[in-house]
Design a protein around this nucleic acid. Structure first.
Lengths: 181, 181, 181, 181
DNA sequence: TTTT
DNA sequence: TTTT
């Protein structure tokens, strides 16, 4: 049944430039690392602290292309999407899980001037691929859209933790274009 | 500073009864497994399919107690909260990440009559522990509220996958009450 | 440009059966009256009070038809949409304003069994008529989609308050099908 | 019952400087006029058009003070709140309705540098006055918080339309501090 | 790894 | 009345 709501809304800044990949079909997939900050009062010290949460955001098709074109490290963005947890196997064969936000809407915020061209008016929203699949699929070919496990990182890739503890452990970056994503 | 929005909204059904734990201080923490369903049209077969996404929801203090008291497997709920990814170590010492929704609001939906008493009027919302910490902390003692890594499951526990592949692999359930959560 | 977010999320109950109208083109428009309740603590008396807010929700095309078919007075619904204020003239020629939620998603909640058939899987979401207009327009013919003032109630109709004080003052109901909505 | 969700999320720009008022008790109330823009494709001309929607946002207490201090005409803001329609009487004694967003969270977006000092970390969120009233009430004294009709504009004031057609018909601005708001 |  |  269509009973269910799964919605995420983020406003944050990119910790790095977008990563854009292309499937053999030409479909784009972009991943963003988005930081959301919040402040909380430490009752012990009575001081304000900042907590940063990092989010892995993925987007497809036209939205992916626009993100790759207009966003940069430091850009402030509004993201709307849904939560999705997918299973993958690390190099030791262990099943691991990564939770991502699959974006269906994006807005570039602030950042007036600073050299970046403006996003085109038709770029802000993805036809929601969940409920009513758009004419041009938002998911790349080779992506088994019916399940949670569109299999990236591919087998044989180095372990790619969902949230790397340090910069030395980068997000998945060695995808094979022939085995898309 | 306080620039940032990190918001999740879910409507779904519980896949199991809530799990309630108590810290040594008496503070409650409840975890829910919430399924959100959506339908998508398989273009190949031209048939409607259902995709289920499972979400791990955690809540503290009064909200946790109310959830434990009024929700049951199958209950339909509205959840509002924020995304949080925490790091933990599995039994092999490998760092793993689990993404959860930390709820600050909950509404029990539908289910009129059916034996379950109604939730009390003051139960619906948690003082948001992120921005303005409530007088009675929403986070249990023993929970290092300043970071992302409030450390459960504890070291030494069996691996608890973020999203079990089957029912045979339950969510973390063998926490030690003396080392809360 | 496409900088802007205008989003409303409601969960409430219908105060009356949906009102469905059809444009000359056959396009449907449905209006719902949705009550959202919240509780607040009266500090004077230290007692919990209930506050009810009424919302006028409008929807078009397929979503409008589904709402008319499956919702009834008392139904619990999830609504997602955008705010829109339109101008109209009452019988004295005075300009008046009505704020509505233009729905693009709807979920029927709870109400298991009770005689009502389930909503079809493709009914939950409207192609968002704002950003990327759907193939079948979500707006009825005769509706000047570019502005805020699609002119109902029509001139000459009795005054129709945005939010009637009592049930004796119903929402606009005497629309002329030839001058749609 | 606590069954109900009434949530609005806006990102837009201020059409004018905030209007700040103070009750006799010293409590602040600020109103914002926020424009949200969206683009839609005119099928007739195959051209992109912009539609602007104006929103009346009200906020109280600390949030009201911060808005008055840091926001200006043109500022980009994120607003989260609830819809509220209140009844008032125009000078002819006719009942009129105005729908507002009562904000409980606000974020200033973009606008780096440009002379404006930053918002303090504790300013972003209002204790939600609906569900669990904060220690310092978010509603000004003199405001009958139990109903929808906190009576401004006061009787005897010139008519103040919810959404003035032109700038010559300003938002309510002649409140009497002794009859707060 | 972001931002203020 | 905003913004891009």
């Amino acid at each position: 049944m269509s009973k269910g709501v799964n919605k995420v809304i983020l406003i944050g800044h990119l910790g790095a430039d977008p990563e854009v990949r292309y499937a053999a079909t030409g479909n784009a997939m972009t991943t963003l690392n988005v930081a959301t900050n919040e402040n909380w009062l430490d009752k012990q010290t009575n001081q304000w602290q900042t907590r940063t949460e990092w989010h892995r955001v993925v987007m497809f098709a036209r939205l992916a292309e626009v993100a790759g074109q207009y966003l940069r490290k430091g850009s402030q963005v509004y993201i709307e999407g849904r939560l999705q947890t997918r299973k993958w196997q690390d190099q030791s064969g262990t099943e691991r899980y990564t939770t991502e936000i699959v974006a269906n809407e994006m807005q570039m915020l602030g950042g007036r001037g600073e050299g970046a061209p403006n996003m085109p008016p038709d770029a802000a929203q993805q036809g929601n691929q969940s409920y009513a699949a758009p004419a041009v699929s938002a998911a790349p070919a080779g992506y088994s859209s019916g399940g949670n496990n569109y299999n990236y990182p591919p087998s044989g890739a180095p372990a790619a933790p969902a949230r790397p503890a340090t910069a030395s452990s980068p997000p998945p970056s060695d995808f094979d274009d022939d085995i898309p994503f």
